[in-house]
């Protein structure tokens, strides 16, 4: 068979699922942020695939925006991680359980 939309979507789903698992499994905050970037990339794959398939450029424009926003978000998220590590000497998310009952 030839390359089809389904392949891209499946790949996108797999990467996304891996990203989700990464968020759940890892304790390090930075790694978690990286897993979130993975998820965003998975979405980008899907969007581009659809854009080409539908012969519509809107998908790629959207990818443009996603990349931009992801960059901004990564910057702010990492700044927060810096601040937290400065105050608590750790970026392990399991150490931040003050909001428990």
């Amino acid at each position: 068979m030839s390359l089809g939309l389904a392949h891209f979507l499946v790949l996108s789903g797999v990467i996304f699922a891996i990203g989700v698992i990464g968020v759940i499994i890892r304790r390090n905050a930075i790694i978690i942020l990286m897993s979130i970037e993975l998820m965003l990339n998975a979405v980008n794959i899907a969007l581009v695939a659809f854009s080409v398939y539908m012969r519509n450029m809107d998908g790629q424009v959207f990818v443009f925006f996603i990349i931009t926003v992801a960059a901004a978000e990564a910057a702010v998220g990492l700044a927060l991680a810096v601040v937290i590590s400065r105050n608590r000497k750790s970026v392990d998310v399991d150490d931040f359980n003050l909001m428990k009952w």
């Binding site: 990464g22 499994i25 790694i31």
Partner: peptide
Amino acid sequence: IFGSILVI
């Protein structure tokens, strides 16, 4: 896929 598994 291999790379992402490595990441996590």
